[in-house]
Simulated scan of single mutants.
Amino acid sequence: YMELVNKLSFKNIINLKSVSDINYKIDKIINKKIRYQFFYKNYKKILEDPEIDLVLVLTSMKEHAKISKEALRKGKHVLVEKPMATNMKDLKELMQIAKKTKKYIFAAPFVVLSPVFQAMHQEIKNKSIGKISLARARYGWAGPNWGEWYYQTGGGPLFDLGVYNITTLTGLLGPVKNITAKSSISNHFRKINGKRIKVNTDDNFQILLEFKNNCLAVVTTGFTMQQYNSPAVELYGSEGTIQMLGDDWEPKGFEIWRNKRSSWELYKTPYANWPWASGFTHLVDCILNNTKPLINLDHAFHVNEIMIKIYESSQKNKQISINSTFKPLKFDKKIKTKKSHLDHDRNHDDI
């Protein structure tokens, strides 16, 4: 986010007024990277400032819902990192407040803004691979060696990493009706910031999603993967297969197999430098121009409910129903794609 804040500040589009963190040492670290006027240990001072229009909530996960609710009540636009909430009570309360206010709330991740995602969305909408019956997605790594909260209740790889896959799959395939999940703690102790700590939340997940269109999808996520070298997302249709290359937060392009052509075709979008934090620039644009966002709050709520109920499914060892839904995503802009051997000149437009 700092890179995009600096970019918009340089263009005089925004003015970063205040930063807050419970650790005063952060001030000395980040004031060398971004310009701002005030640093507070108490975030409430930011919310009380009438000059501030937009608040970014980038704290540890358990604080997201509380701060976001307070910010909306104070009349601020909000960008909140994933997840919006770690339990259904907070999630429902936040949604109720968000629906009543005239302010925007954007919930990460912003994978649906990726040109690769939107290009794949176009292909699926155009029935390029026929009826989709199966899908899979994967995102994980060995896990952070900083931030104990990643390994405490309310943290973990599902809220941190699996959320990308679930957002991508639901964005492409629509709402989920049922989920079944298994999760575990693979490593009961970790060394974080040089200190040995006990892990108190699951760090290893296998998830089955049953969509309302009867498609079945598997999501694999965890702080248990050292490396991998395979597509992030694959969808299997009656007339072909489409797969995203790279991770969904940093996609490199996509490949598509069409039975009619009996070959793989590799496509890249001309947007070489799409930033995973692009929801911030999109939110600023929506505020300034009073335009309808591409980020769908109902979609974000749906994804968040799925994640909360994944824990419930694993704990109860049973299938769990998902109650929320959302309307299909729509993108007015057609994404231009090129076959990889024709991709020489890149477009570096701001997106």
Rank of each mutant, 00 (worst) to 15 (best):
A272N: 11
M225P: 00
I287D: 05
R261S: 06
K198R: 15
K198E: 14
R196A: 00
M225K: 14
T291E: 13
T180P: 00
V284D: 04
N204P: 06
G237K: 00
T241W: 00
Y236K: 01
A181N: 07
G222S: 07
L209T: 06
P270S: 08
W249Q: 05
L283D: 01
K195M: 09
G246L: 07
E255F: 01
E250N: 15
N187Y: 15
D248R: 01
D298H: 14
G240H: 02
N289I: 04
G174C: 09
V176C: 08
G171L: 02
Q243S: 11
Y267I: 02
T180G: 00
D298P: 07
G222R: 06
G279V: 08
I192W: 12
K292S: 12
E265G: 00
K182T: 10
D285G: 00
L294Q: 11
I179H: 02
F205E: 01
I192K: 10
G174F: 06
C286R: 08
N193V: 03
G279F: 08
I207L: 08
P231T: 03
G246E: 05
D298M: 12
N193I: 02
W257L: 03
K268S: 05
T167H: 13
D202L: 09
F205D: 03
E265S: 07
N289S: 07
C215T: 08
T241P: 00
V219G: 05
F211V: 04
L172I: 05
S183M: 14
K195T: 09
L173A: 07
N289C: 03
E239P: 05
F211P: 02
N204D: 15
L283R: 01
C286E: 09
A181Y: 06
T221R: 12
F205K: 04
F301V: 06
I192N: 08
R261M: 09
P175C: 02
Q226G: 09
S186F: 15
I207Y: 03
L245R: 04
N273Q: 12
S184N: 15
I242D: 03
I192H: 12
R196P: 00
N290F: 07
E255T: 04
W276P: 11
P275K: 14
W249H: 14
N290A: 10
K268L: 12
F189I: 11
G222C: 09
T241G: 01
V219D: 01
A272S: 14
S262L: 12
H299G: 11
P275C: 09
P293T: 05
K182P: 00
K182S: 10
I192P: 11
V284W: 07
Q226A: 12
Q226H: 12
F189T: 15
W249Y: 15
T180Q: 14
W249D: 12
A300K: 10
